[in-house]
């Protein structure tokens, strides 16, 4: 279209009836600073002022640095951050605005046109390039030395194994994914409050209460670095309902996994593993704040809404001689999100 060089003057009969012609670049309009010395001077002054603001900003930032030592309080840190940051912002914006203003008002604003060339290399260049490659191929003899080619490719394909094998063997620790099946819970282990670690008596769990629970392990274990991984599977939510409200739980026939309306469910969502912790006392619904899966505690933690599919696993509990809540056993299934071999 742009190649069309016909005139489009409509008064001239015989102009192209198919396409209009490019009118060319619009007329250049001069700025005030181009012909008014006063405007030019004013623009220059503005640029200078902006640079001066930048210098003042830097100085201000340095003063703020030495004058305000953050004292660790919210106010102190906020003030230090604010003054340092504002100084920095002025220092930077001063330079930026000055440079742009300079370019816009004082440097040439006449648009220039530069030619483009097609990206494709010209045929003769291509010919030479292809010839050179062919010469190289011929020289190396890669085409006819089949065994050599095979050996070279195999060597290149294989050498990454020298890095990959040691890496892959160690990067997943012992690769024992069977650990997903077990948690720290075991028969007779007391339920304790999270994060304080106080064992919980059944009598303390009043109706409508919800306790965030961890296994009652030693203080030493709770401060070890392995604990976080154990806790990531073992956290439990303990809730007491009016026993009349409980429609069902996950106890198999002949067993009772709850105790007088007290039920314990894994806190790890069966969707992607967020802690499911929003318990609504009136509806007995447990809601996950990450993706809103909703579980019905009064009905074996079945899913009533959202992206999760399976109920939260129930921890079988009972009371010991002293009236403390204890686990009957570990969970009967892996807690948390589904994975391929979960049921194997």
């Amino acid at each position: 279209m742009s190649d069309n060089q016909h005139s489009t003057d409509l008064t001239t009969p015989g102009a192209s009836q198919e396409v209009f012609a490019d009118p060319g670049m619009p007329e250049h309009k001069h700025r005030r600073a181009d012909h008014e010395p006063a405007a030019d001077k004013r623009a220059e002054l503005q640029v200078v002022v902006l640079f001066v603001i930048s210098i003042l900003g830097t100085i201000g930032s340095l003063i703020a640095y030495f004058a305000f030592r953050p004292d660790g309080t919210t106010d102190g840190t906020r003030f230090s951050t604010l003054t340092l940051g504002l100084g920095m912002a002025f220092a930077l914006l001063g330079i930026g605005l000055a440079a742009v203003h300079w370019a816009k008002t004082l440097m040439s604003d006449t648009e220039v046109s530069e030619e483009r060339h097609a990206q494709r290399s010209p045929d003769e260049v291509r010919e030479v390039a292809v010839q050179k490659l062919q010469d190289g191929v011929k020289d190396s003899g890669i085409g006819r030395r089949g065994v050599l080619k095979g050996a070279a490719l195999s060597a290149l394909a294989l050498f990454p194994l020298t890095i990959a094998v040691p890496l892959v063997s160690s990067v997943g620790n012992d690769w024992n994914v069977g650990k997903f099946r077990h948690t720290r819970w075991e028969k007779g282990m007391r339920l304790a409050t999270d994060p304080t670690g106080r064992p919980i008596k059944a009598a303390d769990v009043t109706i409508g209460s919800v306790f965030h629970v961890i296994p009652d392990v030693s203080e030493e274990e709770r401060t070890s670095h392995e604990w976080i991984t154990e806790k990531a599977k073992a956290v439990v939510l303990l809730i007491r309902l009016d026993p009349r409200d409980i429609e069902s739980d996950q106890s198999p026939k002949g067993q009772t996994w709850s105790h007088e309306g007290i039920v314990a469910f894994s806190k790890i969502c069966t969707h992607v593993g967020c802690p499911v912790a929003l318990y609504e006392q009136q509806t007995h619904h447990l809601l996950c704040p990450c993706h809103q899966s909703t579980f019905d505690v009064a009905n074996g933690a079945k899913v009533v809404f959202g992206p999760a599919h399976r109920p939260l696993p129930q921890l079988p509990i009972t009371v010991d001689d002293e009236g403390y809540l204890v686990a009957q056993d570990d969970f009967d299934q892996p807690v948390g999100p589904s994975y391929w071999e979960r049921l194997k």
């Binding site: 409050t193 919980i200 008596k201 303390d204 769990v205 009043t206 109706i207 409508g208 209460s209 919800v210 306790f211 809730i239 318990y279 609504e280 006392q281 009136q282 509806t283």
Partner: peptide, 12 residues
């Protein structure tokens, strides 16, 4: 524990 909020008694 008003309304939806569970109870956090003094043992908890």
């Amino acid at each position: 524990g008003p309304q939806s909020m569970p109870v956090f008694n003094d043992a908890n």
